[in-house]
Write a protein that binds this DNA or RNA. Structure first.
Lengths: 233, 233
DNA sequence: GTGCCGCATTGATCCACGTCAATGATTGCA
DNA sequence: TGCAATCATTGACGTGGATCAATGCGGCAC
């Protein structure tokens, strides 16, 4: 478990790698709240304004809710990620832990106010937000226009890219989320996820290691089945 | 048609409403390129790095391409909007005009470099990006978890919010995009969009005025059919 | 006005994925 | 090491929206 002071330091280094003014560091520490959460525990946040959350340790999912109990996972986040949890809009959002996690939460407006004079912090927050936006857009394509086989392949390629470790020609990918989480992230059902993973295993594209790890044996074929298009039409 | 100098002024006012240094203004003008496009014309942009585009006049769509000619509209933009067109990722993107439009395009990195010392500009760009991110997340829920009737209702509610004009209890909504654009934005087919609009008209929720305008007669029922959920589950 | 073209609508059929139900495997705990 | 609970897999069947195919209609040019 991380001590509060250590978390604040890591957050400071995250938004200002070149160092931060001691006064600002203290103000940010005062405006932020350390939160420890267990697996599957939702993070209790102020929903009246956008919240900036620093994932000091662990992994989380950002979940959006539609009517009738439907859930869509909007993003996964891992250690040292920054995530903006939107204020209540036409849908409600919550941040839920995938693993035991230690977080630092604060109001985005408050951070913008405190760091109003610091262009470097603003720039880092902007770049981070832009990366989130780029990921969200890629997800829109997957959700809007891809078949189930392509969705699962896209997911595995993305996870391999974010958290995989190369082993010669193959890639070992940890899957810290359940099949339900994968399904809720891809806009399909757990049964469909399962069938697609089985199919990829049967065709020797991947192998499964327990429930929470897969090894990509043939990255080329996995990529080919993901429906990507890198060159303009 | 807007003159180049006027466009630059409006862009400056958009990212620095409280005024901008004359030197910076000139540097930004030098780093940016004015582009006029016709209806359905794709904007020719440098795809090697993220591009920041200011929509001075007109309306555009940001389109992402998947394999086999599938298209997903990631966002619509109107006058005075700022949009970041991502560099080529696992999918290609392009910005396409919905109406004749006048734009100002530049490299995002270049802007960040030129405005590196200006926290206020960074802040405005950050807030703008955060709004785009929030919209993209709302879209993810629609694409991932909603039925066709809910998608169309969500779309009309969103358009009413962004571009509608109130008329007593009803709302007049312009639809500058084709049925194909609506379909490509919602991840369904034009036929399904058409059937849903017909259904909404038959149940007196909306009325259609030509092809590019609708009037929402019963905003409450439209909202109720959009699958929104504003309170946490 | 009027005629033409492209977009939109409507209908019939199909199929990918959802749903429902049962079985099987993994993991945490005693 | 074995048990139980949970999670994942597999199979059978149903359905919402895609696809294919006409037909209708709005908007622009002349």
């Amino acid at each position: 478990m991380l001590a509060k002071s250590n978390i604040n330091e890591r957050f400071a280094a995250r938004i200002a790698p070149d160092g931060m003014d001691a006064a600002l560091r203290m103000q940010l520490a005062a405006a932020s709240r350390r939160i420890a959460v267990e697996r599957e525990e939702p993070v209790r946040l102020d929903e009246s304004c956008d919240q900036l959350v620093y994932i000091a340790q662990g992994a989380t999912k950002l979940v959006a809710y539609a009517s009738q109990g439907r859930e869509q996972i909007v993003a996964f986040h891992f250690s040292d990620d920054l995530v903006c949890v939107p204020a209540r809009a036409t849908h409600a959002y919550s941040l839920v832990a995938l693993t035991p996690a230690t977080l630092l939460a604060m109001s985005l407006d408050k951070v913008l106010e405190l760091a109003a004079g610091d262009a470097e912090i603003m720039r880092n927050l902007l770049v981070t937000t832009n990366v989130s936006l780029a990921r969200c857009r890629e997800k829109s394509i997957t959700l809007g226009r891809k078949t189930a086989p392509e969705r699962v392949a896209s997911f595995l390629v993305t996870m391999a890219d974010r958290a995989g470790t190369r082993e010669g020609t193959s890639v070992l990918v940890p899957l810290p989320m359940s099949r339900r989480d994968i399904a809720d992230s891809l806009g399909i059902t757990i049964e469909t996820v399962s069938r697609q993973i089985t199919r990829l295993r049967d065709t020797n594209v991947i192998e499964t290691i327990g429930r929470s790890q897969i090894r990509i044996l043939d990255p080329g074929r996995l990529w080919a089945g993901a429906g990507f298009l890198t060159e303009a039409k």
